[in-house]
């Protein structure tokens, strides 16, 4: 596998090509990842999520600058939504990362969700591994930021940062709606605006109300990312949290949990591929069954069972080859 070797030698071009390969599920992708996997585990993964307008990209830019100042290398994955109607996407996060975009030790990749829910794209975890294997010290993932379904970040990152901003009042609603639990660190960005202190108090209150027992109390940090204020404190907290995870053994637990989820997803995805091609090859057959099921001539349970059996046969046939 030429590309993998080149990535190990430090080729940016090969790294970029491999990400494309994996993202497009092109031939050779899985084989490459098999070779990549043993090389992973050294990078620390930071997830940044929060509602639109909270300044996630600018925060990413500034955190990166601070990490670079401390001589760490950084990989960034910035995710934007794919249009469900056209399949296209506008990826505009680089605009706010001008400060680091021409730094040789920073690699930025914009990715579209391509139909995946949960705030990340399907290829995110593989891209993380590639950046890890390439040798980046820190990897920052910036999620789509729709505010509600961003829970995937917890499974992918070592530390999840939830960014919000004062004003509007929608933000705190978004937090209440269920993503409150995912933050290891809270950031109130644009803290020069009215209501910043109130927002900090509200978040602290909500964290206090939470019934879950915590060994780590998520800090709430005020930043003005555009003016570089509070960023050093934020990076300090990221490192403190890392130390906590390492000492308490939770980092290993989290990473094990992550792999567990990934394996299940890989299996689901693999099985789904069989299903997808099976249905694709037998469109008319399935249409007819559907018609019969609607007219109560057949029942759906039988069809489901038989389909699973067919997929199982195909899988075992492939395995034997």
């Amino acid at each position: 596998m030429e590309l993998v070797d080149e990535v190990r030698k430090g080729s940016v071009r090969a790294l970029a090509k491999l990400i494309t390969l994996v993202e497009n599920e092109m031939p050779g992708g899985i084989e490459a990842m098999e070779k990549i996997y043993p090389l992973t585990g050294n990078a620390y993964i930071i997830g940044i999520t929060g509602p639109p307008g909270a300044g996630k990209s600018t925060l990413t830019d500034r955190i990166t600058k601070e990490l670079r100042r401390q001589n760490h290398t950084v990989g960034i994955i910035a995710i934007d939504p794919t249009s469900p109607f056209t399949g296209g996407a506008l990826l505009g996060d680089r605009v706010r990362m001008q400060g680091v975009s021409s730094d040789e030790d920073v690699f930025i990749r914009s990715m579209a969700t391509r139909g995946s829910l949960g705030g990340l794209s399907r290829a995110t975890s593989d891209t993380v591994k590639l950046l890890d294997a390439y040798g980046k010290d820190y990897i920052i993932i910036e999620t789509v930021g729709v505010g509600q379904d961003e829970v995937d970040i917890v499974r992918t990152a070592d530390v999840s940062i939830l960014a919000v901003m004062p004003g509007g009042g929608d933000d705190i609603q978004a937090i209440k709606a269920g993503i409150m639990e995912i933050g290891d660190i809270f950031v109130v960005n644009k803290a020069d605006r009215d209501g910043a202190d109130r927002l900090v108090t509200e978040i602290k209150m909500m964290l206090g109300l939470s019934s879950t027992e915590r060994e780590w109390t998520p800090p709430v940090i005020k930043t003005i990312a555009t003016e570089d204020q509070g960023i050093d404190t934020l990076v300090e907290k990221i490192k403190e949290h890392r130390e906590f995870l390492v000492k308490s053994g939770m980092l290993a637990c989290r990473r094990k949990e992550r792999i567990r989820c990934e394996i299940i997803k890989m299996i689901e995805h693999e099985i789904y591929r069989y299903l997808d091609s099976l249905i694709g090859e037998n469109k008319d057959f399935f249409e007819q069954r559907l018609e019969d099921i609607v007219n109560k001539k057949e029942d759906p349970y039988l069809l489901a069972k038989k389909t699973v059996e067919t997929i199982a046969k195909r899988i075992s046939k492939n395995a034997n080859v």
Partner: peptide, 18 residues
Amino acid sequence: RDSGMEVIYTGIRQTPEQ
């Protein structure tokens, strides 16, 4: 984008290097 492509937009004032 509306034709189904993924478009990376960089913003204005870009140097050739960027």
